[in-house]
């Protein structure tokens, strides 16, 4: 049924910390790995080793540059379905294949009834739905519905694969409808925000903004130029400088 539930018992979702995400793609890889063998048909790839590989992924990690000068920075930005409270991706679906669960708010596609008309992907402002041409149905993040309630898994594994895989702890999972949950407290403490709130889809997933800088750049803007650190002749000799340059290069890839 594509009419939305008036309210959901829980609002399960993710909180993504843009301050500490390093853009390592571990969550995306883990997501692909789990979901290609889990719920629904495999997440297919077309010519994965060819010149023009293509495939459906449920999680995409962008890297942006935000701002310029000393305040400018690199922000790694994971993007997946936000399990919106009032998403048009569900209401536009002609078959009822797209639905929002009343019990926990997860937005899912039923792969047995989806006709692959792609209208739902047009209705999502976040680009979160990807069509799987090999199976002719729409794919999207399931919030690992086949993990989080799965009693065959160890307790610690009953969280979405992306959250489990993140090596930096940039991803959190929980009930955002409960103000006392850890995720809700985190959102409150860090001023977590919605993407494109003007749209009115009311995303459940929240993003935590990068923290203000606390390094030499922002401490004393007058003495430090905006140019990236390059090893100068006299400085290049020290081990520490070399290491710093290397780390800087790796991290800003």
């Amino acid at each position: 049924m594509t009419t939305l539930p008036t309210s959901t018992k829980k609002k399960l979702g993710l909180v993504i910390d843009l301050d500490i995400c390093v853009g390592c793609q571990a969550c995306a890889t883990s997501c692909k790995e789990w979901n290609t063998g889990g719920y629904s048909a495999p997440l297919s790839d077309i010519q994965p080793y060819g010149a023009d590989p293509d495939g459906a992924w449920l999680n995409r990690i962008h890297t942006y540059e935000a701002g310029t000068g000393p305040e400018g920075r690199t922000v790694h930005f994971p993007r997946s379905c936000l399990h919106c409270e009032e998403p048009a991706c569900v209401t536009v679906c002609p078959t009822g294949a797209s639905y929002k669960r009343e019990e926990d708010g997860i937005v899912l596609v039923n792969p047995d009834t989806c006709i692959g008309c792609k209208l739902c992907s047009w209705a999502c402002p976040y680009g979160a739905r990807e069509y799987d041409p090999a199976h002719g149905v729409m794919k999207k993040c399931t919030l690992c519905v086949d993990r989080i309630y799965n009693e065959n898994l160890e307790e610690e594994d009953r969280i979405p694969a992306c959250v489990r895989a993140c090596p930096t702890g940039a991803r959190h999972f929980g009930d955002l409808g409960d103000p006392n949950s850890d995720v809700s407290k985190l959102v409150a403490a860090r001023e977590g925000y919605d993407l494109l709130p003007e749209f009115g889809y009311k995303p459940v997933n929240k993003y935590l903004p990068p923290r203000p800088r606390r390094d030499a750049y922002s401490q004393d803007k007058s003495t430090v130029a905006a140019a990236p650190i390059e090893p100068s002749d006299n400085e290049a000799g020290t081990m520490a400088a070399k290491l710093f340059t290397w780390a800087d290069r790796m991290l800003s890839r």
Partner: peptide
């Protein structure tokens, strides 16, 4: 992206090498 408070937002590295 919600990053406007930092300034202009420009893509630096795409999430995938080929169009999706």
């Amino acid at each position: 992206t919600g990053l406007g408070h930092l300034g202009k937002v420009r893509p630096l590295d795409p999430p995938h090498t080929q169009p999706n």
